[in-house]
Amino acid sequence: MSELLFVEQFTRQSEMVTDEDLLAQSLDGSVNAFEVIVNRYKDRLFNFVVRFVGDQETAEDIVQETFLRAYRNRDTFQAVAKFSTWIYTIAGNLAKSELRRRKRWRFLSLGSKDEHGNTFELPDVASNPDRDAETLLAEAKIEDAIARLPDHYREAIILRDIEGLDYDEISTIVGVPLGTVKSRINRGRLRLQEDLGDLACALWKQDEDETTAVRSNP
């Protein structure tokens, strides 16, 4: 565990170092430099992958495999693209492969997964004491609605609205033209609204109440 503490120290010292420089250091044989990259991106990638494939264990495996592939191919990375774009592309491709594999074997599976291969989980209120039950329930419904979106809409929505990447980056990661990305995001959002129906209206009402409260108590 002392090695992990060393990596944490190294991470703090390397806050100002760019991903590309860290990658160059790892090419010279420094595993610690690559671990700083891992610490920077592990949660971001996990958030993307877990919502894309809908299963925590598979998402963990995919994130680990993403980093290993990036490490193996670190000499092929070209600085013309951002490192974040490159690593999201690897993760996205692995997640898509997993979804394709699932579709192939869907008829053999008798688990508790729905037709899209997503596992439904009830929100765990106890593990999130700072969020009220209503918010958690609403979030769970939104997560389910995201899971029900077609793969290409879901990928675009997660990258844009949850991960906050810009359109150019998404276009490179997904491997489609910019116009297609914009279209997918717009249609994905409209599809989400339709799917959520009553919840969307409830969110609207809640939003209006909050706005009124802010206006009356500035």
Binding site: E60, I157, D161, I162, R189, L192, Q193, L203
Partner: peptide, 17 residues
Amino acid sequence: LMRIMRVRLSKLDRKHL
């Protein structure tokens, strides 16, 4: 509704490894 939905999506709980 789309504006509200965008805000909600950006505030979704972050998952951790």
